[in-house]
């Protein structure tokens, strides 16, 4: 009969179990129960997801792609003239005359 054969097989294949099998299991079970559940709630996932999106958004929008600078010749000349004019503002017309005594000493 099927059941007799099964019983015979079970009887002959049963190994001696460790004496602390149950104790070891319930110890592992306690660790699983006491494990901190950081991401167990939907609210935690929602808040952390939003925070991640905010950080990504700031990182993406703050990034400026470097722009190739071109040399503007006319702008350079105009700037140089402005600088020269501002330097000459405090200098009188007489001072500009190179034939005056001050310069004869050379």
């Amino acid at each position: 009969m099927d059941s007799e054969l099964k019983k015979a097989l079970i009887n002959k294949t049963q190994n001696q179990k460790s004496p602390d099998f149950d104790a070891a299991f319930f110890e592992k079970l306690e660790k699983v129960k006491n494990r901190p559940k950081v991401f167990s709630g939907w609210l935690t996932w929602a808040i952390s997801g939003c925070a991640t999106l905010c950080v990504l958004f700031i990182a993406v929008t703050s990034y400026n792609t470097p722009v190739k600078r071109t040399f503007n010749h006319s702008e350079y000349i105009n700037s140089a003239i402005e600088i020269q004019n501002s330097l000459n503002e405090d200098v009188s017309v007489d001072d500009l005359d190179l034939t005056s005594k001050e310069y004869d000493e050379i």
Partner: peptide, 14 residues
């Protein structure tokens, strides 16, 4: 023959 097999298993060692 399951009866025969059952007997064989009962007689054999683990």
């Amino acid at each position: 023959d399951e009866d025969a097999l059952t007997k064989l298993i009962s007689v054999a060692t683990k």
